[in-house]
Design a protein around this nucleic acid. Sequence first.
DNA 1: ATATATAATGTAAACGTTTACATTGCTGTT
DNA 2: AACAGCAATGTAAACGTTTACATTATATAT
Lengths: 331, 331
Amino acid sequence: MPITIKQIAKKANVSIATVSRALSGDSKVREDTKKLVLKIAKQLNYNPNILARNFVKGKSNIIGLVLPDISDEYFSEIIRSIDDTSYLNGYYTMVMSSHENRSLTESINTMMNSGIVGGFILLIPFINSEIKKALNSGSVPFVLISGDDDIGDFDVVTTDNYQSAFRMVEFLVVKGYKKIAHISGPPDNNDASLRKKGFLNACSKYKIDVKKSWLAKGNFTMESGEKACSKLLNEKEKPDVIFAANDMMALGCYKAIHSIGLKIPVDIAITGFDDILISEYANPSLTTIRVDTDRIGKVAAERLIEKMNGSINKTIQKKEIASQLVIRSSC
Amino acid sequence: MPITIKQIAKKANVSIATVSRALSGDSKVREDTKKLVLKIAKQLNYNPNILARNFVKGKSNIIGLVLPDISDEYFSEIIRSIDDTSYLNGYYTMVMSSHENRSLTESINTMMNSGIVGGFILLIPFINSEIKKALNSGSVPFVLISGDDDIGDFDVVTTDNYQSAFRMVEFLVVKGYKKIAHISGPPDNNDASLRKKGFLNACSKYKIDVKKSWLAKGNFTMESGEKACSKLLNEKEKPDVIFAANDMMALGCYKAIHSIGLKIPVDIAITGFDDILISEYANPSLTTIRVDTDRIGKVAAERLIEKMNGSINKTIQKKEIASQLVIRSSC
DNA sequence: ATATATAATGTAAACGTTTACATTGCTGTT
DNA sequence: AACAGCAATGTAAACGTTTACATTATATAT
């Protein structure tokens, strides 16, 4: 019982083709017929059947968004950012979380083959050959959002993990720190390894001697940060600052440090990476790196829409979104 | 160029109707034809065109999810939970954020009239007559997720704001606190007013004398909590515990208290509401109330799917999801 | 006024699937 | 062997929109 162009056509005494043209606006329709059709459409509260439109056009104006198997505080920001951008360009956003019941490849296959989306964005913490294969199996355009752009011949939007970690070290060096420790993230995580690499290369550039025992291992959890920090504090030569590969581990360091009565940043300084909500309010507030999630979503969506429109640029594009050093009181 | 049932039909030497029936499984098709069709479908890597299916069936298996104009850390959990439930029932999830560019009513109208979704869930912090009107304007089923179930004749899933606030006070009373202050949230926010109501009624039941000056006003931000707390600390008769209507304000209290050198919970105790990520890691960890977002999403999605399937229960359902008191070190 | 070009509109097919209805094939009963 | 009854399959229409192509109306040039 929703209004269709047929009813408009009848009421306006024109053919459905004219109605369609008047509504889509781009074809040649006489000004007054167009006005009439628009008026009647409005009057009847007509809304185009999007499913029918997508179906007949053979392409969908729905953008798929594949989320990985983890809950992350910044996902809702990315989702919102992508949805905003999509909306402004006349697209809708469909989410698809991967989890125990639905694997990532299954999600990709649905995106590729069901026709339900015209393109998709994949939030992907790591890549493997199975995923690559799935991504190469179809012709639906997509863009990746990842921590690493070295993941094959795909369009990808990344954070500048390496650069930011590098700059963090530079900042610490300028501040006068000499003994810098690092707590790294999971070894199979791209963000983690790039941050570590940035750390190491910066240290090497600025002639900071990194003791092996100062390269602690964590897994991005607060607990692992706490544990790693305790270990560092037990070294006979203690670092004077710890650069954790993410904020959660940095806050774990807070715990370890406070528990033995030391003070940040007086006794030891801490820095993190991510600028999660809590970091601003921690005591002391945490110096860290803010990822521009808003921009990441926007850039990814814009690039995807470009591809969906079949516009010019066919070459693979790697876009790195700059993060920002957020200087607070922890160092 | 995606595979269609036509190609399967040709290859299997049957009509497209038989293919359709074999694939949908529910009609009477001979066992061996069914097997043959399924085999060929698999072999050709057939995926049904969902747009076409939805279109011809006149209904969509996409569930819309309308998000309000705020970024909230628990949204990604709700989104995930809804998507999980949808997926398990054969549905997809489409998000639609409301914001400056797209009003809430506009989102509702799209959901109602474009045919793109078969039903939708509305995350809604408050309701007004314009929204009510929009909701009453169509025939697409929907479910609300709100802080208050007293928002008209709609299916709604709520948190038990009132009950939980009530129980928080009970808990504080049992703990021996006598002078309880409250920092309320925005006056037009349902969650906020129900929490305040629960607080007041519990105080009244347990004969807790609530001084007028102990009813501070905030707006859910950390700053407002800090300010309200400072004011409370300047009263000649200070409360011995402050129950903030949300965690952010509770953490604002932390700031105010620490800044003048007092200790929590020794000098004054604090409790919150929401159990945001940061609360567990605050110092001291915050006693608060955890909203079961996972369950909220699941229940809302299940109820919506029930309605979309046109199953039995047509009467309005108000479902209140129980929250959990999380006892930590701040009181 | 006529011919021509072009603008406006109409006609009808197409998209992939489901499904009401029609037809065919098979089984068992007499 | 004839027929009923039902199971299996086929035929074709339908869904709402767009769009290639056909037709008609209008404007322009002669």
